[in-house]
Design a protein around this nucleic acid. Sequence first.
DNA 1: TCGGTGGTTTACGTTTACGTCAAGAAGGAT
DNA 2: ATCCTTCTTGACGTAAACGTAAACCACCGA
Lengths: 131, 131
Amino acid sequence: MSSQTYSISDLARELDITTRAIRFYEEQGLLSPERRGQERIYSPRDKVTLKLILRGKRIGFSLAECRELIELYDPSGGNTKQLNSMLAKISERREQLEQQLLDIEQMKLELDTAEERCVQALEQTLKSQAV
Amino acid sequence: MSSQTYSISDLARELDITTRAIRFYEEQGLLSPERRGQERIYSPRDKVTLKLILRGKRIGFSLAECRELIELYDPSGGNTKQLNSMLAKISERREQLEQQLLDIEQMKLELDTAEERCVQALEQTLKSQAV
DNA sequence: TCGGTGGTTTACGTTTACGTCAAGAAGGAT
DNA sequence: ATCCTTCTTGACGTAAACGTAAACCACCGA
């Protein structure tokens, strides 16, 4: 049952970010690790939170948006009004993700045509060299 | 054949961005509209470019990354080496998009579980109110 | 002729997300 | 006891992506 813990540089290494970034996320309220004296002690849960932050960043979420996601994920039960506003936020996020999916599909199509033009240009080059 | 043109505020209104942003994109080399005297005159192609920028931004691309995409889309044929490096960049971008797809799917799953917890908490609230 | 309306450049301000020292405390090896 | 490593808290610096304000043309209708 010895629940695993991590130092800040453990996580930095494993997740390939700087300790500065991790402390900054805490400063912005996205993380609140245990302390042993001054030292920060991270739980597996903290690690999951960090991964969520990194995923969020990869798809262009701001830290503020990531924090909202984390709060959504948090089991700190609020009152009914909060629950309803949480559901609203969740559906907002879902719409945003759907839009991003469309954007990505469109981007892929554009990469297709760009690639095609590249390949054709290369073929032209090779032909003219063959002469 | 009267090829359509737009003023800067036309595009700002239509694409829901500020004129400042549009000028900034130009300053960063993402756009180079015609001029009539001092005045900027935008073509349909410029509009397409702007839409590409906005799509890029929605999925977290930096302006520098957007500019690369625009250059990829550009038919200004380079030499063979450039073409090969373009193909490499295209496949890099494609990998990044695939990663983003995975990230988004994961996010959607997390929204699912967050929503489920919300709904269950709401049901609990209603039950206890019913007594 | 005069007052908008819409365009321009220049320039400084702001927010976000950290990077980069500096200075110090804590524990372990020699 | 001293040195090394790893941690800590400031505090200032920086790049990106604009916002905002100033000061200036140019045309157009009343």
